[in-house]
């Protein structure tokens, strides 16, 4: 990880932010920098100006989005800029809600900004936040999780559309050649509620199911909106051939103003055993594409230590080259005790 070590943002999982609960003894370097010195992390000689660049060496300072972590009791998520991209265009949101019967529900949304569009980072942040808010508002009202997921994706799409109308700030003026291109992103989300597992997605971000008992088969829960997936689905190419094509990753569905027809996909499952839902962007699954591979890199105790395991998965992508932003959310799924939730 030589490259990662030289990077100011520090992508190495585990050496940055604290768990949600108790913080470690060493303070997070990014927090310190924002609160106090504003010294340059690249040359260590200059101060950081109002635009976020060093007054001495000019280098951009790590942004808070370069590495983000969040953990609740029943879900954890980690997002990292990776080693090759200059900013993190992925985003995520996690939340808990309480169903009308008092049982808990957990929500995770992961979005990947489309780099060839303008302001992809704003698109992914708006989509993740909006989808998560929509779900946490709908679930306590008794909405069916699958219906709520569908509506959350529609709401997220509207939020991304709105970005194209309202002018953005900062990034926009730096990219005048991209003005014509409206912001866009993918979305994948999962809800665990009342013994039900619901996923929803648009684009090529994915959800995987990995049972705690690794003897049982893992499964991919989403179908990419991508060129390769369409070729395979249409029977025009074999999987290996399609994914080897340079067009493989061209996405055919996304949220954003350039998308002429929004087609949110949702699916509901009733797992019969405990496991972990892996919700991630292609920055991770490119380094663990098959379900077996994903099951192999996911730590065996992922159900008990979701934040640690999310860090391990991000580390796996970085060790593999970190060519893209990497984001993963892990939702442990426990089978409800017999009788519960079956009313």
């Amino acid at each position: 990880m030589g490259e990662g070590a030289a990077r100011p943002g520090g992508g190495a999982p585990g050496r940055t932010a604290a768990e949600h609960s108790g913080g470690p003894a060493v303070p997070d370097p990014r927090t310190v920098e924002h609160a106090v010195a504003r010294g340059c992390v690249a040359c260590r000689a200059g101060r950081v100006d109002a635009d976020g660049y060093c007054e001495n060496c000019g280098h951009a300072q790590p942004s808070e989005r370069d590495h983000m972590e969040r953990a609740l009791d029943t879900v954890a998520a980690v997002s990292d800029r990776g080693l090759r991209h200059h900013r993190n265009e992925d985003s995520f949101a996690v939340a808990r809600a309480v169903l009308p019967d008092g049982s808990p529900a957990t929500v995770a949304i992961v979005c990947d900004g489309v780099s060839s569009a303008t302001r992809p980072d704003e698109a992914s942040a708006a989509a993740a936040a909006t989808a998560c808010e929509t779900l946490t508002a709908a679930l306590p009202r008794g909405a069916h999780p699958q219906t709520a997921m569908h509506e959350a994706i529609v709401a997220a799409a509207k939020a991304v559309d709105a970005l194209a109308d309202g002018g953005g700030d900062g990034a926009r003026e730096h990219e005048p050649h991209r003005h014509q291109n409206a912001p866009a992103c993918t979305l994948v989300g999962a809800v665990v509620a009342g013994g039900l597992l619901v996923v929803g997605w648009v684009g090529d971000s994915r959800a995987y199911w990995v049972p705690d008992d690794r003897g049982a088969p893992a499964a991919r829960l989403t179908e990419d909106d991508s060129w390769a997936a369409q070729m395979v689905a249409a029977g025009l190419m074999g999987e290996a051939e399609a994914y080897a094509d340079e067009r493989a990753h061209a996405i055919t569905g996304w949220l954003g103003a350039d998308s002429y027809e929004l087609d949110p996909h949702t699916a509901a499952f009733k797992p019969d055993r405990p496991g972990v839902v892996v919700v991630c962007t292609d920055g991770l699954w490119n380094y663990a594409e098959g379900t077996d591979e994903m099951a192999r890199v996911l730590p065996a105790d992922a159900g008990a230590r979701p934040l640690h395991s999310a860090r391990v998965l991000v580390g796996h992508a970085l060790d593999g080259g970190g060519h893209d932003n990497v984001t993963v959310a892990l939702l442990p799924f426990a089978v409800p005790p017999a009788g519960a939730g079956s009313a």
């Binding site: 060496c57 991209h85 200059h86 900013r87």
Partner: peptide, 13 residues
Amino acid sequence: RVPAAGLGREMLA
């Protein structure tokens, strides 16, 4: 002409 920096880096030129 700026000093070269690594891939993924950004600077104010």
